[in-house]
Amino acid sequence: MKRILITGGAGFLGSHLCDRFIKEGYHVIAMDNLITGDIRNIEHLFKLPNFEFYHHDVSKFIHVPGELDYILHFASPASPIDYLKIPIQTLKVGSLGIHNCLGLARVKNARVLIASTSEVYGDPTVHPQNEDYWGNVNPVGPRGVYDEAKRFQEAMTMAYHTYHNVETRIVRIFNTYGPRMRLNDGRVLPAFIGQALRGEDLTVFGDGSQTRSFCYVDDLIEGIYRLLMSDYPYPVNVGNPSEITIGQFAEEIIKLTGTDQKVVYKELPKDDPKQRQPDITKAKEILGWEPQVSRAEGLKITYEYFRNLPEEELYKAAYHREFTKK
């Protein structure tokens, strides 16, 4: 039985990866310090003999006994609320954390895949964004702690690949959604659905003309799995190229939820990207991958997940959002 370590294993994407590799017959070791992850995302796996959980911060030395075949580094705050609240931890997990994971991969002779992001492109001047674009990032702006952590992470990964012959894979993830997202994480989709469920007006920052491209989580996990099993060591965009403006997306959510809220507009945050659309040519050619789940289908599943959350979760999210503004 092959063994895989998944850092950030109790998070949104990490928990779905745990499920996928359990399904594929792996021995899965999930590692998370639970600073943004939620143990409830993986508690259904605890009874399995081929699943382990390590409550540990990857920014500190990592020890995993026995052999390891693969390491997936998904530990990182990934939402604006999180990385603005804990900027130092965000930088540490993207620097010390990746260094520890790569060192472990070298010792164990394991293949490592890191979760990078479309944020390495910053507020792009190229559209759609392809892997050869170097980005337009403000390193000292409020988003710099996340953007530069991911850019450093890519550089460190390639250095280990080049100088230590570590097998590396880099996935650049575009906006992803689905069950197990947190309502209070500040990202546009759970924010809109949470507001609709509470009967609040939907808040759009800016004039609503900025765009995003949303990929359903099952499609993303399939792309990550294929990239890990490929022999391609360089960055690959994985996302859904179906682009939509935030204003149009707000209207989609209102229609989906059957509510009659209005859309209200507020000032656009500093350095917020105006356009986001992946060029997935490499993913198609190298991985034979492209999204299969339409936005309408994925949103319906995601809405049902949020709609069935306990009521206290819904209002805890609203309280958290207001509290973190102060």
Rank of each mutant, 00 (worst) to 15 (best):
R20Q: 12
G97M: 10
P235R: 08
V217D: 01
A283F: 05
T257Q: 07
P269K: 02
Q275I: 03
F51T: 07
G66Y: 11
Y234I: 01
L299A: 07
L220H: 05
G14W: 10
K326M: 12
P87F: 09
N240A: 01
Q153K: 08
I193M: 14
K92Y: 09
I301E: 13
K60Q: 15
H164P: 01
R187V: 08
P235G: 06
G247M: 05
L96Q: 12
G97N: 10
E222I: 00
H164A: 15
I98T: 12
Y265D: 00
I244K: 07
D123V: 02
P128L: 06
D57T: 11
G97T: 09
K255Y: 10
A105F: 08
R226Q: 04
V171N: 03
W134S: 12
Y265C: 02
I88M: 13
T211F: 05
N138C: 10
S76W: 04
K150Y: 12
I4F: 01
H161E: 11
I246Y: 00
Y315I: 08
R3W: 02
L183C: 10
A196V: 08
E290A: 08
V140Q: 12
S59R: 15
V58E: 14
S116V: 11
Y177P: 00
V204R: 01
T168C: 15
G135P: 06
H161F: 13
P310E: 07
P190V: 13
I4G: 01
L96R: 03
A30I: 05
F46E: 14
H63Y: 15
Y305S: 03
R40S: 15
H320K: 13
A10V: 03
V107M: 14
L72E: 05
F74M: 12
G8H: 03
V188C: 06
I42L: 04
Y265V: 00
I170G: 09
G288H: 11
K262I: 00
A250Y: 01
V166G: 10
E285L: 12
E285I: 06
V126D: 12
H164F: 15
L48I: 02
S95D: 13
F323T: 11
L256A: 05
K2T: 10
P128T: 07
G25W: 03
K316F: 13
A159P: 00
T176L: 04
S15H: 05
P273F: 07
R106Y: 14
V93C: 12
L13H: 03
L96F: 13
P278C: 05
N130Y: 15
H63L: 11
L13E: 03
V217F: 11
P65R: 14
P87D: 10
Y216S: 01
R182V: 00
Y54H: 09
V64P: 04
I86W: 12
V28R: 00
A149W: 09
H164M: 14
A191K: 09
S95L: 13
I246V: 10
V145Q: 05
L84I: 03
D32R: 01
R3M: 02
I280K: 02
I22A: 03
Y70D: 13
Q292Y: 00
L202V: 01
